[in-house]
Write a protein that binds this DNA or RNA. Sequence first.
DNA 1: CATGAATGAGGGTTCATTCAT
DNA 2: AATGAATGAACCCTCATTCAT
Lengths: 176, 176, 176, 176
Amino acid sequence: MELFAEQGYEKTSLREIAERLDVTKAALYYHFKTKEDIIVSLFQDLTRPMDELITWGQEQPRTLETKKEILARYSQALAAAAPLFRFMHENQATMRDLSIGETFKERMLVLLELVKDPDAALTDQIRCVSALFTMHAAMYVLRDAEGDPEEKREAALEVAIDLVSQAHGQAPRVTR
Amino acid sequence: MELFAEQGYEKTSLREIAERLDVTKAALYYHFKTKEDIIVSLFQDLTRPMDELITWGQEQPRTLETKKEILARYSQALAAAAPLFRFMHENQATMRDLSIGETFKERMLVLLELVKDPDAALTDQIRCVSALFTMHAAMYVLRDAEGDPEEKREAALEVAIDLVSQAHGQAPRVTR
Amino acid sequence: MELFAEQGYEKTSLREIAERLDVTKAALYYHFKTKEDIIVSLFQDLTRPMDELITWGQEQPRTLETKKEILARYSQALAAAAPLFRFMHENQATMRDLSIGETFKERMLVLLELVKDPDAALTDQIRCVSALFTMHAAMYVLRDAEGDPEEKREAALEVAIDLVSQAHGQAPRVTR
Amino acid sequence: MELFAEQGYEKTSLREIAERLDVTKAALYYHFKTKEDIIVSLFQDLTRPMDELITWGQEQPRTLETKKEILARYSQALAAAAPLFRFMHENQATMRDLSIGETFKERMLVLLELVKDPDAALTDQIRCVSALFTMHAAMYVLRDAEGDPEEKREAALEVAIDLVSQAHGQAPRVTR
DNA sequence: CATGAATGAGGGTTCATTCAT
DNA sequence: AATGAATGAACCCTCATTCAT
């Protein structure tokens, strides 16, 4: 996962993976049928939290409270599987060709369905899109910025929650 | 650009590019020194609007009004160079190795500097990050969604403007 | 080595080498990291005698007797690795770019240091240079000439020994 | 010639030549039919002295005096066309494929015929080979050594003359 | 469970050369 | 007299994959 996240899928060769694990290329082929199989395996381990979040979300009533909880859990999932999400974000062109059942984008759209109201104003729908992406953006842009990562995560979550709250017609908590 | 955006940089071979243009591989090498040079050229054409925006922004007073204008102009630049931004989004792993990669992220950070206040609360800083990315996200997620693209763009811009307004301590326009 | 000696380094392609060995090009790359690596390997096998000669020579007293012995041994090394030396002679332009190139010329100069006296008259120094090269020249020019190669080698060695003897102030054996 | 001498024939591309002369590749093709034609032209200019020396030598009586004169003239020709000789020496593998009427080696052998006596003892024949090569070797080995080049040339010539003198049964001038 | 050896397909790149203008 | 544009052939090299052992 480290190699894939650093270099991207195509630019990571089996030779590199084998060297990093200190085994031979042929040994990899004992455990995985193809290169694609390797990354699919990694995904199955790492996307479970996200899938669980989705199924959980689908069973809940579609209240603002639920949405806030979804954002909170998503924020945590994001932090827990940071390299995976980084990989998905940065290798979407590749992901399209990989036989991973639902792509990252599809999953995102399902999640989005849970958060946004298809009958709301367009701006409010976008607020919900933005809420989800805010947490990604915060992770991406603030990666090298100073400050406690946990603190940054919480701040991003707060902004996200504000956004869906506004989408529900509530005035945001004004912070100053 | 079409090929790069569809398939990603690494998976697009010079053979494909040449075939699409109905020339030989060698002919490409008369016009571009390397494969990287091809995409760099595409970028130079397409990032000019962004550069102009930055220099313009740096000459303005750092008021809320200016920031709104920056967002408005950025929204337009984004729409004009949509395939380029899609490519960057989806090929970040590659971008890191390309000589332009760094410069794009730098550009984004400079732009961010113009929009956010380094002394503001962390949440407000993230609101500004989010404002910029909202427009990206809207473009990305709503690409295949129904509705007039121009309408969507304006809605995203509105949300972005709300976010920086809030970061300036102003209550958002409540839309419903 | 045969191909390299016949055609030169640049004009010998990996395709040719692979065909001659009846393997694929890719198979070569399993055994050698680069094309250069192939020739470097050939050299390492073939220059060992020369290295041993040098270390031996450096441990001996710098008498005329030693120098004669060095020439005798060098003559033998030359005969043993004839194709190698032919290659070096005929591909010096290439050798300069190869990572071994320098080392060969350096080796020759070290050997020269063992044979010539830096304080002697210029002509005597050149006699020593000439002594070494005589054996090369003989090999090169007389390759296709008639006569027993071993006999020619011995004659060349005799001339070389005469040259260093003269450089030591001794009258040459006059042969007729 | 500079480029060919520095890098060798194969590794010098027409692009490089064109750039060095500040013309286009196509312009070269107006003046020369092929790449080979370029180097052939250079040779015709530069080997004339050597050819003249050969025809002159063939008309002279085959005395020791003549041979000394040949060596003297050859020494001068060598110095005058140093880069050419360097090129020939270092690119023999290439020379073989070039359609330059007589190769360097052939010319050398003709010259050698003029200097050596086919009926002499083998060692004496080698002395004559060595005489010619001494001047080459001196040029090659002593290129980067300190000292006046002209002085070195004369010393090498002296050694060469000594060698043919000995081949004629004369005791060498002992220098110390 | 693992490896050494090998391969076909394709990668990006460079080259000498051509030709209409 | 010169050039911009193009090309076919070849280059070195890397890749994911296979298979007998």
